[in-house]
Design a binder for these strands. Structure first.
Length: 552
DNA sequence: CGATGTTGCCAC
DNA sequence: AAACGTGGCAACATCG
């Protein structure tokens, strides 16, 4: 039964609706007692909470020690329904833009902050009215079943994201410092670390450029050219083609400079508190439905510093990665029997090699990635015709998505998230030849986007179903282990990190084996939820480790 | 001096 | 190997 929460001044109004959406009870609650109210009803009745925005409501409930089982996020659901093709002829799609279309307002999450301290105020109408509009749009849509699953997955994703931010990624500042010191030398009080400074001295000699500052791409490029090198940019992969004694130390300098600026000591000072890095996930922040992140570069943690992610004493990290997720998703969506067969192998790329389509794993990998990204050159271009012959259904699906995009049509994921419209001018015979070339090239580029959208977006849906199922399984696993805990995840296995096709669970060591089983079971759940009849296996690579660098 | 654009590189 | 999809972010350069 849905219970819709709405703010009213400094208090909260809770409306119980019946399954037909009719209000059967209403209660006003002072906001200080909201956590207790939510905790009690959640335990007793397992209601489906409905609120405007999980990112706004949930962090403070978590801070008060309250975890909920289910909650619909009206803001995220509105965004999906607003642009979904399947709801395009419903009243919701025709509404003028309103507060429900506005971006999230970040809450002020500090122990002392009041429930409704927001960084900015977003005015939205009554939540129960929006809830009914959305329910109506789903019911009238061409495919209520899958859309409802998408909305549920997005909503549970928002809960999981808030919980992972709350629990945080266990981060050892001491290990991080050891890693940095090993690479760069000791932390400098000012100026460059020792190793980098030594490299600069060498570079200045080797390039005969006493003033050289390798941090300035422009001046670096000029210095390289003055030394007689045919450099066109200072990109590492281009520099690698050049032969000169300065290239190796330069590449090393760039490597170190990257670590220092992106994940150096300053990063630790800014982002690690009390042994935790707390990423802010932006659910649905990518057009395709993938998550983005806000602050700290949470989704780009370089492998170099992953050794600083260390389980608490007596705990383990269970790190699971969906092997070749996007190709498997493509096989399932397209019903391509040959590709599904290749996916029986733990390594789908090896399965493709065994199918005889390609000579080696490398060709299989770049052939598949080329099919999904729209590659035309190099290995992917060469292998494409063979992929088409061996996996006709899969290749047809991506190529039709590309052609639809080129024609300016929208495409959709398996569960119905719809790509944005292209906007801009279309192709027109009256254009000049250069303008026509550009229009054609823009169309092809948009085709690569829509081609990728259907696969990347569906993979994101699979991942959210995986994580949603795992979240529930972990909670059930932890029941009983919890007695003396002060906050919901103190003593029990919980999700700690998510990265597109990879999850990390932080767990008391005695649960690690069971966690691994649940992670695998959840992947099977996700496969069944999305593709009940497709014989595609979603293989995982799972590792139980003490630190993140030991996984993979 | 802050806002905006560009470059380059990290992740999947 | 070559430069084909989605992002975030820091530093430098430039603009107003």
């Amino acid at each position: 039964m849905p219970v819709v929460l709405d703010r009213k001044g400094d208090s909260v109004v809770a409306r119980d609706l019946d399954d037909g959406g009719v209000e059967v009870a209403i209660l006003e609650i002072p906001s200080e007692t909201l956590p207790a109210y939510v905790a009690e009803r959640d335990a007793a009745e397992h209601p489906r909470w409905v609120w405007s925005d999980t990112a706004e409501w949930y962090p403070r409930l978590l801070l008060a020690g309250v975890r909920v089982e289910r909650a619909a996020d009206l803001r995220l659901c509105r965004r999906i329904l607003r642009s979904a093709e399947a709801t395009s002829s419903t009243p919701l799609a025709g509404l003028p833009r309103d507060g429900w279309d506005a971006a999230a307002a970040a809450p002020v999450v500090e122990p002392g902050a009041a429930l409704f301290d927001l960084t900015e105020r977003v005015e939205r109408g009554p939540a129960h009215e929006e809830y009914l509009r959305q329910a109506d749009a789903v019911a009238r849509s061409r495919e209520p079943g899958v859309l409802a699953l998408l909305l549920a997955a997005e909503s549970v994703g928002a809960l999981t994201a808030a919980e992972m931010s709350h629990a945080g990624l266990p981060w050892s500042a001491r290990r991080h410092d050891e890693i940095l010191t090993g690479l760069l030398g000791a932390r400098p009080v000012a100026g460059r670390p020792e190793r980098m400074e030594a490299l600069v001295v060498r570079l200045r000699e080797l390039l005969d450029a006493p003033e050289l500052d390798p941090d300035s791409p422009e001046r670096l490029l000029r210095a390289l050219q003055n030394a007689g090198l045919p450099a066109r940019s200072t990109r590492s992969w281009e520099l690698k083609e050049l032969r000169h004694p300065a290239i190796a130390p330069l590449l090393e300098y760039k490597k170190l400079a990257r670590v220092l600026t992106a994940n150096g000591w300053n990063w630790v000072d800014s982002w690690v508190r009390e042994g935790r890095f707390r990423p802010v996930y932006v659910v649905g922040g990518v057009v395709t439905g993938r998550w983005a992140s806000d602050g700290g570069g949470a989704l780009q943690l370089p492998h170099q510093v992953r050794g600083a992610v260390v389980a608490d004493p007596g705990w383990k990290l269970v790190v699971a990665d969906a092997a070749q997720l996007e190709p498997r998703v493509l096989a399932a969506m397209s019903g391509d029997a040959a590709m599904a067969r290749a996916g029986r192998a733990q390594d789908l790329y090896e399965g493709i090699v065994e199918s005889g389509a390609v000579a080696d794993r490398n060709e299989a990998k770049y052939g598949m990635l080329g099919a999904i990204y729209g590659g035309t050159t190099g290995v992917s271009g060469r292998v494409l015709p063979r992929m088409r012959r061996v996996f006709p259904d899969a290749m047809r699906l991506v190529e039709e998505a590309a052609r639809a995009g080129e024609r300016g049509e929208r495409v959709r994921t398996w569960l119905g998230r719809t790509s944005p419209s292209r906007g801009g001018e279309g192709y027109d015979e009256t254009l000049s030849s250069e303008a026509r070339d550009r229009a054609r090239s823009d169309a092809r580029s948009w085709g690569r986007f829509t081609r990728n959208f259907v696969v990347q977006g569906t993979a994101a849906e699979w991942a959210m179903c995986w994580m949603g199922s795992l979240r529930r399984r972990l909670w059930e696993l932890g029941e009983g282990a919890q007695s003396a805990a002060r906050h919901p995840f103190d003593r029990r296995p919980h999700l700690a990190f998510f990265l597109h096709d990879e999850v990390m669970v932080h767990t008391p060591a005695e649960f690690a084996d069971q966690v691994e089983q649940e992670v695998r079971a959840a992947a099977a759940d996700a496969g069944r939820m999305l593709f009940p009849s497709a014989p595609v296996e979603f293989a995982l690579t799972v590792a139980q480790v003490d630190s993140y660098d030991r996984a993979k």
